[in-house]
Each structure stands twice: as structure tokens, then as C-alpha cells.
Design a binder for these strands. Structure first.
Length: 575
DNA sequence: GCCGTTTTCGGCCCGACTGTTTTCAGTCG
């Protein structure tokens, strides 16, 4: 079982315990363990083999035993007992907004509801309004929630949510002439996917902002609207929540609503050890209130340096802050070049010189052109003859540049049998070789991992492009064993890519963190197919930052000479 | 069920909003 599968099962147990009405701290413990297992960055099976399950935060004696049974036999007696008590369909009711464990249990016990479909039927028949604690309005809201469930997409890619949030905050800023309105939540933490868009505003008259917000032209439906909170559905189907409050507490609010929840819980626990109570409104010590206008003040009050939002996942950032060893995270301005872009020589839209111009506008000192190779027919991949023609063209352009250089690279296909699309004698003529998998992505774990490992062992292969092959919201990652790929990267000195394309973000943050810890060299590339996207690396930079990467971990922040020396080293060392 | 520079037992984050209540329970984040 994968970490994700184990985490999903633990969360399901937590749901069942909630429905049964167990003390909530029990389910809280299961969820916490699930979060930590998912964010572990290590294969849980491997952790078990080493007898280190107890070292996972949130795993105590009881959970260790259960994990042992689950991973050893593939089954868990405790879970099966729960299943006999709480029908699967009742757990499914929790996916309906408005329905939590109490209502799920009520519907099940009083009306025999055992699925979302049952719930919908009961609501339509007007049977919900007579239940204790419910009325006509609740019945209507539950019905609407079920309907919205049916056409609401799950999580939105960061690259979709970010521009929408920018557009809304910009509109409010202009309309109300206020400066403090900004995205918070997972969006500010730059997670690769976002649940809902959360915005926060500061104004001496908070209701002014919520009123303007619900009247924005992008709003299709107002879900709730109070003086300090409002929630809407946009025409494009996205849900946006806004909170507006007076400026004197903005720092506490910003900190609170940025989350993550796990980070905030840990922060509150820390506050308690300092005799302080922390809420979104500020600190309290007895009757005394301490207000924070800025986020910096919040952290300072606890004796901590300001922690970048990307790190706030309760993955050790508080400990690091306490010990003064927070990383100096990489920034977009650190990048000196891009190792992976396409031109009209394969499936890109722009010419070589247009891409070179865009790179100079982005402030880069070099650009590696890495077009597709011949096997990728749909992308008009290069054969050795056209590759050499392109090289002549690049050399010609380079004679016109003074403080900028184009390099010839290639994105060579790793074929289904694990061989590369060009023989070694062709590859050795190329300055930067990126090797990627685009075909036969459904192979089993062993096959697809072996393919990439074989590529990495080729001395001419410098970079592995988008290692997992995932497309956010469209396609799951391939079954590739990334733990093995990371180890192999250390062995062979191969660079792994953080692909910044908004629908990829591949490697993801968890594996970036692991790579950084292992000392695997990384690069942040746009994979741009047109000049407009060449400078769009903010999501890739964010992913690197979420993985605790510093500039030194990212090879395209290095001077070009140092980078080329490094590539040369692998080629000589291996041969 | 976890965890410990206040504890191996007794805590475990806190408040807005909504609806059905006339003081609160449930959900959500």
C-alpha cells in the first residue's frame, strides 16, 4: 500500500469514529497521523521494515500495531469491525457540505439513509424537515448542497486559481481604494491544488468590503453573506470565501487564515507554553489583549522569525524557526536561465530568436533550447539531421549576442523499452540533454522505473524532465518509484526537474523536500511552448520553496560555467 | 489515540455563521 492509500484509510476510520460519536480527539489523532504519513516523503513500507513506525509524529503504540497489521497483511481487523457497524454509504454522506457526522448519523438512524442518493430522495420527499434540529431551510440547503456536489469539481490547480484570485483582489482594491486584500489559505501557501479560494481584507468598515464583494460581476450566486464574511460561487464554478475585518488585527488574521490548520494548531500549542492564547483576533494573556497589525508581530510575539507561507505545513518549520535554521528559500530572481523550452522546430509556437528575446526580457543570461526528438511524431520531433541544422542556426544567433547565450539541448524521448531516442554519438554533441517519458505511461512500477533508471545511467543524460508524468486534474502520476529515482539521482549525479508548467508542477513539493535532504541537484524549468510562457516559473519556484529548496539546490541559479562544468563531470566520470 | 521544560493522566485551538433554538448544536475552516 502506498502512503496515500494508508492515509486515506486512516481518514476513513476517523470519519467512522465521528459518526459513531466517539470523543473527537480520537478521530483527530487518526487524521493527524494520516497527514503525517502522506507528507512523510519516505515509503511507509520501508519505514516499517526499519521498525521506525513509532518515529512518525502522531503514531503511538495503538496506531503502530494497526499499521503493522495493515501493511503486513493488507487487511485491518479494526477497520472491518467498524465497517460492520457503520455502512459505507453513511460515511459517504459526509461529502455533502452541510452534513457532518451528527446529521449523517441522524439521517441514517431515523430515516435509514445509506447513500447520497437516499439523502437526496428523502430531502425531495420532505422527510428531513421533521427531524430534531432540522427544519425546512436545512432540508433545502442540504438538497442544494447535493446538487452542487454533482457538478463541482474537486480541487483546482494552483495555475487556475491564482489568476482568478488576482483578478478579484485587483477589482476590490480599485473599487474600494484599499490596499489590504489578498489571497490566503492554501493559495497563499502555493499548494499545487486549491480547495476554495480564500480572500482576506482589512478595512475600518468591514461590511463595505463584503458588500462590494458579493456584487462583483464575476459572482453568480451568493452562498452566505454576513458583515465580516461572505461566500460566493463564481460563473466559472469556483467558490470564493472572503473575510473582512478592521486593520488593527490584520496580522493575526492573515496568519490565521493562511494556515495550514496543522501549522496553526502547532503554533497555538507553542503559544500556550508561553502562557498566551492565540486566536485569529490576536493574543490573550488573562484579560490583556495583544493585537498584531503585521504577521511578523505574530511570530515575533512567540519569539520566532517570520515563517514563509510555503513552509507552513507543520513539517518541522516551527522547530527549525525555534532553532534559527529556517532555509533561505530560493526566489524567482535567483534564476539565471532555463534548461527546458520548445520552439517551432518541434511543437513550440515561437522561433529561436523570439525565445531568445523573451529569455533576455526575463533577465536570463542563457537559455537552453530543448526540443522534442523523432519518436514524438505528434510533436514534430527532431531527427539527427534537423538537430544539426538547428545547431547551425543557434550558432549564427549567438554571434549577435554579447551578454547572453543560447545553448542547444534536447528533450530526448525515453522509449517504452527504456532506450533513448538518439544514439550516444548524437547525444554527445548536445550541450544539455533532458530525458523524459511521454509514452507508455501506464507501464507497471518495475517497468517504468527501470526505464528511467537506465536513462539516468547514460553519461550523456543531464536532466530527467517532469519525473512523475502527472497532469493536475487530468492524469495521475505514473507508477514510477520516485524513492528509487531519487537514490539513483544521487548515485549518477543526474539533475531532476521541477517542471513549472501550471498543469504539471512535477516533481511535487514532497519529493523536492526529499531531494533537498538527499542532496539531489534540481532545476526549475518553464517547459514553455511559446514566448509568453517563458518567464512563467512562479509556480515551479513556489513548489521548490514548499520543498525547502535554497538557491544552491537549484542548478539554474548557478553561473553557467559552473553548471556546464558539472555536466561535463558526469560525462567524464561515467565513461 | 497521542503526548509530556507545568503532566504517564488529563488535557487536546477557537470563533463565525446558520438554523432552530429562546441559549444552543452543528458545520466549517
Amino acid at each position: 500500500m502506498t502512503n496515500h492509500e494508508v492515509a486515506t484509510l486512516l481518514r476513513r476510520i476517523a470519519d467512522m469514529l465521528d459518526i459513531k460519536g466517539e470523543v473527537i480527539y480520537k478521530s483527530l489523532a487518526y487524521r493527524k497521523a494520516a497527514d503525517n504519513i502522506e507528507a512523510l516523503g519516505l515509503d511507509i513500507n520501508e519505514v516499517r521494515r526499519q521498525g521506525k513506525l513509532r518515529e512518525i509524529p502522531g503514531v503511538g503504540e495503538a496506531l503502530q500495531k494497526k499499521l503493522d497489521e495493515l501493511l503486513g497483511t493488507g487487511r485491518l481487523g479494526y477497520y472491518e469491525e467498524l465497517q460492520a457497524e457503520v455502512p459505507e454509504g453513511v460515511v459517504e454522506l459526509l461529502t455533502i457540505p452541510e452534513v457532518g457526522p451528527r446529521k449523517a448519523r441522524l439521517l441514517w438512524e431515523k430515516l435509514g439513509v445509506q447513500s447520497v442518493a437516499d439523502a437526496e430522495k428523502a430531502a425531495r420527499a420532505g422527510k428531513l424537515r421533521d427531524l430534531p434540529g432540522l427544519g425546512e431551510r436545512s432540508e433545502q440547503r442540504i438538497l442544494e448542497a447535493i446538487e452542487s456536489l454533482q457538478h463541482r469539481s474537486k480541487r483546482i490547480p494552483l495555475g487556475v486559481a491564482w489568476p482568478v484570485a488576482q483578478e478579484l483582489t485587483q477589482a476590490l482594491r480599485e473599487q474600494l481604494r484599499i490596499s489590504t486584500v489578498e489571497p490566503v489559505g492554501s493559495l497563499r501557501r502555493m499548494r499545487d491544488t486549491i480547495g476554495d479560494i480564500d480572500l482576506l481584507a482589512a478595512d475600518s468598515r468591514p461590511e463595505r468590503v463584503t458588500q462590494a464583494f458579493v456584487k462583483l460581476p464575476q459572482v453568480a450566486e451568493v452562498l452566505s453573506h454576513g458583515p465580516t464574511r461572505a461566500s460566493v460561487l463564481l460563473h466559472n464554478g469556483l467558490q470564493v470565501d472572503l473575510r473582512s475585518l478592521p486593520p488593527e488585527r490584520y496580522g493575526s488574521l492573515l496568519q490565521y487564515f493562511t494556515g495550514s490548520q496543522a501549522h496553526n494548531v502547532a503554533l497555538r500549542a507553542l503559544a500556550q507554553t508561553r502562557d498566551l492564547s492565540l486566536s485569529e483576533y490576536g493574543f490573550r494573556r488573562g484579560d490583556q489583549e495583544i493585537l498584531c497589525r503585521t504577521e511578523d508581530e505574530v511570530y515575533r510575539t512567540l519569539g520566532l522569525p517570520w515563517i514563509p507561507p510555503e513552509l507552513r505545513e507543520d513539517r518541522g518549520e516551527l522547530q527549525a524557526a525555534l532553532e534559527g535554521r529556517l532555509p533561505r528559500l530560493v526566489e524567482q530572481a535567483d534564476l539565471r536561465g532555463d534548461l527546458h523550452v520548445h520552439t517551432d522546430w518541434s511543437d513550440g509556437a515561437a522561433t529561436l530568436s523570439e525565445m531568445a528575446a523573451a529569455a533576455q526580457r526575463a533577465g536570463y543570461t542563457y537559455l537552453v533550447i530543448s526540443d522534442h526528438t523523432q519518436s514524438l511524431g505528434v510533436a514534430n520531433g527532431l531527427d539527427p539531421t534537423r538537430l544539426r541544422q538547428q545547431r547551425a542556426e543557434i550558432e549564427k544567433l549567438n554571434r549577435g549576442f554579447s551578454r547572453f547565450r543560447l545553448l542547444q539541448g534536447v528533450e530526448v524521448e525515453i522509449r517504452a523499452d527504456g532506450s533513448l531516442d538518439f544514439p550516444d554519438d548524437v547525444l554527445q554533441e548536445i550541450e544539455v540533454v533532458v530525458a523524459s517519458v511521454h509514452m507508455a505511461l501506464r507501464q507497471n512500477e518495475e517497468a517504468i522505473t527501470a526505464r528511467v533508471v537506465r536513462a539516468m545511467r547514460n553519461p550523456h543524460v543531464d536532466v530527467i524532465g517532469h519525473p512523475s508524468g502527472r497532469l493536475l486534474g487530468e492524469r495521475e502520476a505514473s507508477r514510477i518509484d520516485l524513492d528509487r529515482i531519487l537514490r539513483e539521482a544521487v548515485e549518477t549525479g543526474t539533475i531532476l526537474e521541477i517542471n513549472s508548467a501550471p498543469n504539471r508542477l512535477d516533481l511535487d513539493d514532497v519529493h523536492v523536500r526529499q531531494a533537498v535532504q538527499l542532496g539531489v541537484p534540481l532545476c526549475i524549468n518553464s517547459d514553455a511552448h511559446s514566448s509568453d510562457f517563458l518567464g512563467v516559473v512562479e509556480y515551479g519556484v513556489a513548489t521548490a520553496r514548499r520543498g525547502w529548496a535554497e538557491a544552491r539546490d537549484i542548478v539554474n541559479t548557478w553561473p553557467l560555467k559552473r553548471l556546464l562544468d558539472r555536466l561535463q563531470h558526469k560525462r567524464l566520470h561515467a565513461s
